[in-house]
Each structure stands twice: as structure tokens, then as C-alpha cells.
Write a protein that binds this DNA or RNA. Structure first.
Lengths: 230, 230
DNA sequence: CGAGGCACTGCCGGAAACTGACAGTTCCCG
DNA sequence: CGGGAACTGTCAGTTTCCGGCAGTGCCTCG
């Protein structure tokens, strides 16, 4: 096995563990000596991986992912840049918007000048979404709950103005027309429901993990709604 | 210089040349032997680079670009995926739409399963754009003209229904509300003009390069319109 | 048509890098 | 305070890399 492949394997190992994992353990799994492991970790850190080691504990990889070298055509790059621009500007989720900008600048930074110009020529004139309803809650909290498969308690104001409290199992955030909605299982109705994010007036994250896997719920929901998987 | 850096340098060299460049020349520029150059090219090809060599001529890199290993946070990945989904589904430009899908599948292919699920959880429910006016021309032609800084002759139907022929210097494609427009210098009006792509009834690309640099026109237009550079 | 240039491959010896083992230091935890 | 773990330096042994050489097939140009 070549060195570069081994480095990717090391990343994979670190990513799959939430708890810190010790150097000797990693070395054993990879079939290399401890000394070499330390060198490999140093190499990864030099390449930008955010690996932290603490004596007595082990190594942890801060959330993130390293994309291996990828080949894109000019059109593909332009599509990615255009999409990221749209997210950066259009998304009302402040965190997601900032992430899009960061991703964009990382990509632009490594683009040759010729392609960078080309990418900048496909710009966005998206209307500044003034008419878009302001969210009263932090959509990032919802995204976090989805990622960790946690239940969520929300205050929701229906179309008729009546307010209700619901516990939902969120598994997806989507855009419908220009309104963002969170889709989840509603414990009150015992059915799938969509909630417009701009109508959620309060939000309480919980530590309660919901029972089904997110992917399973997504699949069931898609089948019921008759939505193609892409 | 490490081997991986050298491989990137090699790509850079190939990208900047339009004409085929011979192996000995490349080897000299990189400061390596011919034998090693052949090995490096074989490595790049194995990694997916579309390099073609012909005896008597030299090497050419088919249009494309290799992104070096990049570190993205989970949020950044999600932003990119979301944006690409939007382009794939929303864009009326068939070529761009397909490129977005291809880029998406390339990215998803290398994502660890955990992140892939997470990325799929942020889906798009974009309305299927039924009301979006059908373009009568191939927007890809416009994009190509922009990339190559070529003049374009268009038949344009104004809001009043009157048709006119214009020669424009296109430098940007944008989205305004949900209508795509091409922005360029209009030779007829001697001023910047925006043209809704769904109102362009005919399109003739030319080989005539327009005089100003695209970036310069973009800058001038932005200043006049008072649009921030992002 | 022949000569020369070039892409491409296999082989080999020397150079460079990688690897593992050992020793030693610092820090955290029980 | 002892043990475990993160680190660093050093040094042989091994692997990989690199340049040179020889050879084949293709193309272009004179």
C-alpha cells in the first residue's frame, strides 16, 4: 500500500471515531509502527487536517473532511461556483451562508487565474430576498438536530394564526418555492409534516435521539410523497 | 520539491498551453528527466487527468482542472452539495445542469457514508419550474462566447414584442428573480444592456474577439450599477 | 521514401525517502 | 507518583524514486 493511500485510511479511521483514539491503537489498525504513525499525522497536519492530540487521551479529528484530488471540467467548476454563490446569497441560514462563502474562497484560491475569471463571469443577480420572511429562530439548530438525529420541540404558528407546540423528528430541510421548510415526523399528528421555518416561533433542542434512522425516514417519506430520490 | 507538488506544476504547465507541448520541453521546465516525466504523466492519467500525447506533436490536456486535496467542514460540504443540487434542478441550461449533476456525483462518491447521509438530508424541494419560460436558444453557446471573449449576434424580442438584431459583447450570465439574463455591451445602444435569455430568439456566435478584457468590462459595469463585487 | 523527432516501455544502478527500533522528554490521568 | 501517551532525535535497513540506456512504433518533414 502506498503512503498516500495509507494517509487517507488514517483520516477515515479518525473520522469514524467520536472518542479520542490512541496512537498505538491507530498504528496497530494500520499495520505500521508508532513512529511512522506520528510522522503520518504530522504530514496530514501539514496538509491542513485539523488533528489534535493530547497526552493521556488520544487523537481527535475536528469535524471536517479532506477531499482527495478531484478532476472537474470547466463546466463542473462553474456549476459548483454558481451553486455556492446562490447558497451564500440566498440562504437565510447565516451559518450555511457563511460556510458557502468559505467553501467558495477555498475553491477560488486554488483555481488558475484563467478559470477564476471564467467563474466570476457567471455571477448571480439574485434579488436580495427582501420579501423573504425573516426567520425568528436559528435554522442552524435544526440542521444540528438533523445531523445528530435528535428530537426537537417547536412552537408553530399555522396558516390560521393559531399556535401549537409540537415534538418532531426532523430529517430534512428543503426549499419550496422560496420558503424554507423542515420536514419531520410529527408526534402530535403521528404522521409526516412540513413546517415553514419562518413560522416557527420558538425552538428547543433536546438530547433525545429519535428511534428511526434518518435515512429510513427519508426513504419512507419520499415513497409516500412520490418524490424521486434526486 | 515533493512529487505531489511537481505533479500539480505539471498540470499547471499543460493547462497554460493551447498548443501541444513536447515531453522534452516539459521535462526541461520542470527540471526532471524525460523518463520521470513519462512516469509523472502516467500517474496523472491514472488519477483521471485527460492528457493525450501524440508522437511527433506533443501533449495536450483536454479542458478540465484538477482540484488539489482540500479540507472542508461539514457545513461547507453541505453548502456545496445544496448549491449543486439547486443548479442541477433549477438551471434551464441543459449543459450546466448536467455538469452540476456530474460534479455532485463525483463529490458524493468520495464522501464518507456519514457525511453523505448528512448531505442528502439537506435536500431540495425546488418547484419543478414549470412556469419558467422555455429558452429557445442554447445558453451554452453564450457561456462559451463569454469564456472566449467573443462577440455575439442575437435576435431579441423586447417587452413590446418588437424584434431587433444586436451585436453584443457578453461578459456575464446572471439570475434575476428566476429569469436568466446575459449582460453585455450592446453595440447598437453603445451601452451596457441586460437581455433576458428566454427572449432571445436566435443566436449566432462569431469568431470576432471583442476589444476589452472581460474582467475590465465586468468591473466597469459593476461600478456603474453599484453592485458589490460579491 | 528515408531521417529524425517523439511517445512509450522495460531494465538497472545509484540516490533519496521512508520505515522501524530505540532512547529520551514532557504532559496528563488515576 | 507511576503509567500511559504525545512528541522528538538518531540511526541502520528497506523501499521507492529517479536518471540513463536501449529498443519499438508512430508521425512529420525534407
Amino acid at each position: 500500500m502506498s503512503r498516500s493511500e495509507r494517509l487517507l485510511d488514517l483520516l477515515q479511521l479518525l473520522r469514524n471515531k467520536r472518542m479520542p483514539i490512541t496512537g498505538p491503537d491507530l498504528a496497530r489498525e494500520l499495520g505500521i509502527s508508532i513512529r511512522t504513525l506520528y510522522r503520518d499525522i504530522a504530514t496530514l497536519q501539514a496538509q491542513g487536517a485539523d488533528i489534535q492530540g493530547e497526552p493521556g487521551l488520544g487523537y481527535v479529528l475536528r469535524p471536517g473532511f479532506m477531499l482527495p484530488p478531484l478532476m472537474f471540467s470547466a463546466d463542473e467548476i462553474e456549476a459548483i461556483v454558481l451553486g455556492s454563490r446562490w447558497v451564500a446569497r440566498r440562504s437565510a441560514d447565516e451559518r450555511l451562508s457563511r460556510s458557502a462563502e468559505q467553501a467558495l474562497s477555498k475553491i477560488l484560491a486554488v483555481l488558475p487565474s484563467e478559470l477564476r475569471e471564467s467563474a466570476e463571469a457567471t455571477n448571480l443577480l439574485v434579488a436580495q430576498t427582501t420579501k423573504q420572511a425573516e426567520d425568528q429562530i436559528d435554522a442552524g439548530v435544526i440542521r444540528l438536530a438533523i445531523r445528530n438525529e435528535r428530537k426537537l420541540v417547536i412552537q408553530y404558528r399555522g396558516a390560521d394564526g393559531a399556535s401549537s407546540e409540537r415534538t418532531i423528528w426532523p430529517f430534512m430541510i428543503g426549499f419550496f418555492e422560496s420558503v424554507r421548510v423542515v420536514v419531520g415526523w410529527c408526534e402530535l399528528r403521528e404522521d409526516f409534516r412540513s413546517f415553514r421555518i419562518d413560522r416557527i416561533t420558538a425552538l428547543t433542542p433536546t438530547e433525545i435521539r429519535y428511534q428511526k434512522r434518518r435515512a429510513v425516514m427519508l426513504k419512507a417519506w419520499r415513497e409516500r410523497e412520490g418524490i424521486a430520490s434526486r
